[in-house]
Write a protein that binds this DNA or RNA. Structure first.
Lengths: 109, 109
DNA sequence: CGACGTTGTGTCGATCATCTACAGTAGTCG
DNA sequence: CGACTACTGTAGATGATCGACACAACGTCG
């Protein structure tokens, strides 16, 4: 499957979506995104962790150290109510923007 | 209509698309994009002209001073064959990426 | 004539998301 | 112990976009 770069600005949105499905740790989020995208997105750590810190600073997620099923330390992230709202808003913004792009690209004559 | 910021990386693609429909000058491109997007995209000059220079440096468009119908000096841009190819490729990349994003955002459970 | 609005091109500095590359911690298994 | 894997994080560079500004040229109107 052909890989693609992230569209700038969508990473936060995608992380919020993944966390809305299930609380998980950072590494899990990136794995999940890779699989959900059909191997299109390869989120590297240099993008992932700063993004999680951003979301935490904005109060959209909370973090907590826990243990994975394999007994490893990991930081679990959970969506806050504000994060839930931000997800809805940003999802709407994405829809508007991407539809506008599609509308232009599919323009005939 | 609610305005939205450009998705970073899509401006070059949108400019190529507009120029593939018709050669025009920079200001015309931004007007056309605004209208085609249904007033969603407001391309400001600080983004537009650097983008046109980028495309010119890459050999995707050529530029030529001419006069508009109202007899004003303006720089008209035209797609090169390489620009046509780049348009196809970037269009494909956009489709792959945006579909992957949609696939994740519409994920149920 | 001169001021002004409109059209049109361009630059500058700042901001910010992402990338590449690196570093470090901790658990497991041979 | 040594290697491997899972997992978190940082540092520096790059580069697209933005907001604000400057400037040129044409027409119009007082």
């Amino acid at each position: 499957m052909a890989r693609a770069d992230l569209l700038q600005g969508t990473l936060d949105l995608l992380i919020l979506k993944v966390l809305s499905l299930e609380s998980m740790h950072g590494w899990g989020v990136s794995e999940r995104l890779r699989r959900m995208s059909g191997d299109v997105f390869e989120v590297n750590q240099g993008s992932l962790y700063p993004a999680l810190q951003r979301l935490r600073r904005k109060g959209l997620v909370t973090a907590e150290w826990r243990r994975t099923e394999e007994n490893r330390r990991a930081r679990y992230y959970e969506l806050t109510p504000a994060g839930e709202r931000a997800l809805q808003e940003e999802h709407g913004a994405w829809r508007r923007s991407s539809r506008a792009v599609d509308q232009i690209l599919d323009w005939a004559t």
